[in-house]
Design a protein around this nucleic acid. Structure first.
Lengths: 251, 251
DNA sequence: TAGTGGTCTAGACCACTCG
DNA sequence: GAGTGGTCTAGACCACTAG
């Protein structure tokens, strides 16, 4: 168990080490919805870290929707409905797994293309720049739930093969490991749409069926656009998210 | 200008005061996309605060997608595409204003009802608990773009009138000011759907038109559910969001 | 190697909540 | 008033980036 390792053994900063311990405690059900954590000063003493480090661990968890703090009252475990709503960049495989489904994919095509004007504008690159386009049907428990159409900016000469993607569960993990693809942030735009003939075929629904359309632009650590992805989902697919702030900036 | 006020005059914590100054600098175009901010130590000296306070201001802004920091390189202004994608709980009026539209509403009905079993389960209350149900058509520049169906848990005896809501631009602002309604966090679930006869009438679209469906549960500071809201939007409406994390927890 | 952000500490005081 | 989280400080050292 993580608990038995010292922070230096885990190679993690102390606040991450502490966050993992607390997270574990919650995941094991020893602390449940809206129950209070020990006070910060107590945690600091018990784990032999400064109070500031405790606070860093708590803020780290709060950002992820695991706990929340109330001034003057204490720090509490977030209700189940909130925990686990944090969105990550490689969300599909992740989310699906978290919800108890088996994520899958069927590759429609992999092409080396030049950026169209529309895509070039979105990605802030020259039109005609070489891109890799990957189209996939996404499955949950072998049922098609969505189509992904990704346009990737990869280093010159990168070659992506069907079998590579198929072997690796997650396209992102593959790209990160093999091609230095390093997503830091993404912007998403969601709206309603209707299935066209292609969508209908791949998703096995009638033409004009309502679909959830999600456009994503992914940025590298230097905030250069490295991917444009158009995703369309059938109505049974749920996109979950969490909002933690009021517009007055409070909390 | 805020710049000329001392932190104590603004009644804000120093880190918020500093964040506002930097934000202002960016908004005025003195610092633009991917440009570097001064180093933390320099900001600390210049504004006569500790480096830790500077860091707190920077983290506050980073959470909101205004800037980003890279270890060893510096801190930079987020590209325009990213800035302003932060979602807030009272998003409709806010977002619409930010995008240059004029937000509006047409109230369909205000009812005092008892919680149905479905709603009661979602809100974690007894079925039959008194709720206020507010149905509204949301407008942008006087064009209907969505319908909101809110079920509110308000203190006993609260009375909500049409004219009150109409006078106040934002329902949330009214509830907060008048009824101690204090949203701290919200969970949203998005999916695709089709317009039913009612939707079609209010949104002025054919029945079965694809709609973006967004269900929201709003929680109080004590993380008690205080609202369930079902929102449906026509396909021209864009729901924008930002994802800042990779699933390995890095950054 | 110089410069940057990231982690960590120990201590002080403020602001809020609740009995 | 006692206990909690929130802000702030001054200083140290580590980790990463780039010329």
């Amino acid at each position: 168990m993580k608990k038995d390792l010292t922070p230096s053994e885990t190679q993690l900063p102390r606040y991450r080490w502490l966050a993992d311990i607390i997270r574990d405690t919650i995941d094991r059900g020893l602390l449940t919805d809206n129950q209070a954590l020990p006070p910060e000063r107590e945690l600091a003493e018990h784990y032999e870290v400064s109070r500031d480090t405790v606070r860093k661990a708590l803020r780290y968890m709060e950002e992820r929707g695991i706990i929340y703090s109330d001034h003057g009252r204490g720090t509490f475990v977030s209700p189940t409905i909130v925990r686990g709503t944090t969105r990550f960049i490689d969300s599909f495989s992740q989310d699906t797994g978290n919800r108890g489904g088996v994520p899958g994919q069927r590759i429609i095509s992999i092409e080396n293309i030049g950026a169209s004007m529309a895509i070039a504008t979105l990605l802030n690159i020259e039109s005609g720049t070489p891109l890799v386009r990957v189209r996939r049907v996404r499955l949950i428990d072998d049922v098609p739930v969505g189509v992904h159409d990704a346009h990737l900016v990869l280093p010159r000469g990168s070659r992506l093969t069907r079998s590579q993607i198929e072997r690796s569960g997650s396209l992102y993990k593959l790209l990160t490991a093999q091609y230095g693809f390093d997503p830091a942030e993404a912007v998403e735009n969601l709206c309603a749409g209707a299935a066209d003939a292609d969508d209908a075929q791949w998703l096995d629904v009638p033409v004009a069926t309502p679909l959830l359309i999600c456009e994503r632009i992914t940025l590298s650590d230097r905030r250069q656009p490295i991917e444009y992805c158009l995703m369309k989902y059938v109505s049974s697919y749920r996109y979950r998210t969490r909002i933690a702030r009021h517009s007055d900036g409070t909390r």
